[in-house]
Simulated scan of single mutants.
Amino acid sequence: MNQRSIPQLLDYQGSSPKPGDFDVYWERALHELDHQTLAYELVPAGFSSELAECFHLYFTGVGGARVHCKYVRPKKAGAGKGAGLVMFHGYSCDSGDWMEKVAYAAHGISVLAMDCRGQGGLSEDNLTVRGTTVRGHIIRGIDDPNPDKLYYRNVFLDTVQTARILMTMPEVDPERVGAFGCSQGGALTVACAALEPRVRLAIPVYPFLSDYKGAWALDITTSAYEEIHYYFRFFDPHHLREEEIFNRLGYIDIQNLAGRIQGRVLWVTGLADTICPPSTQFAAYNKITAVKDLLVYHEYGHEYLPYLSDRTLQMFMTL
């Protein structure tokens, strides 16, 4: 497939399988989450602003992990309930600086930005699994007999819990909550909007974690999907378990979740992306049946995209 041919990309439906019990798998996961408390702890942050109040927020996620978020809310007294935004970060990073969140708070939007378990932030990863990871998180739990041990199952559920907590905030209107993130954060934006249907607007930017088999068929040693290559290289060089492996990864493939989204979606992609190849992104985009728009940066890849910050702020202001 021509990675930069939009007509071809808009027809692409992905190469990875969808497990036969996929819907049962996620309904069971959401049932577990329904029994998880939405209680949280707020700790004033060292960062201060005349426009916003800044806090560290902690909650207990599935499996008992302590999950950390940055919470920034407007400092406008008597403003009533406003919009809310959950934010998700890129692979191995953290929830980012306070400043970008203050910009939203200055426009009346409360922001809750989650640290992924066991990555660059303060959230802990207490998952105990059998098997190796080689490197990275995609394959964490792939060799465990229990598919519920997949690392990203818990992270996807953390995104839902983060959104639900934000929806309980006294200053937030639960019907006016959006989701945003780039790369891994884009994938988590899709997962959050798919698993929490009240998310009204989702803006995923060049999302990761989609169409694993399609990514593997490309030159993934230079992409974010390289750990799949290394897994086969070290643990299944003859690909005797290829079908089993890709079926297992199908549980945490956002293209299999995308059809559940009910809110509006603005999908942002760069056609020169070699980190998360465009075809893997379109495999998920093409399965969205909700109202959606596509914003294409033809000469851009996995990088800073001009004017995007302004556009996303303006869109979330309409929530």
Rank of each mutant, 00 (worst) to 15 (best):
I6W: 12
L9V: 06
D11G: 13
P19K: 11
V24S: 15
E27I: 09
E27S: 13
A29E: 13
A29G: 15
L30K: 12
Q36P: 02
Q36M: 07
Q36V: 12
V43P: 12
G46S: 13
A52T: 06
H56M: 01
G63Y: 14
K70L: 12
P74M: 07
D94L: 06
D97K: 14
K101W: 08
S110E: 10
V111T: 04
V111D: 08
L112A: 08
M114Q: 07
Q119W: 10
L122S: 07
L127W: 05
V129R: 09
T132H: 14
G141I: 00
P145A: 02
D148C: 12
Y152S: 05
R153M: 11
R153H: 04
N154S: 14
Q161D: 11
T162D: 15
M167V: 03
P170M: 05
P170R: 07
V172N: 03
V177S: 11
F180D: 09
Q184T: 10
E196Q: 08
V199R: 05
R200P: 03
F208V: 02
A215T: 02
I220L: 12
T221W: 04
H229P: 00
Y231H: 05
R260K: 13
Q262M: 08
A283C: 09
I288P: 01
L294V: 01
V296R: 06
D310E: 14
M317G: 11
L319P: 11
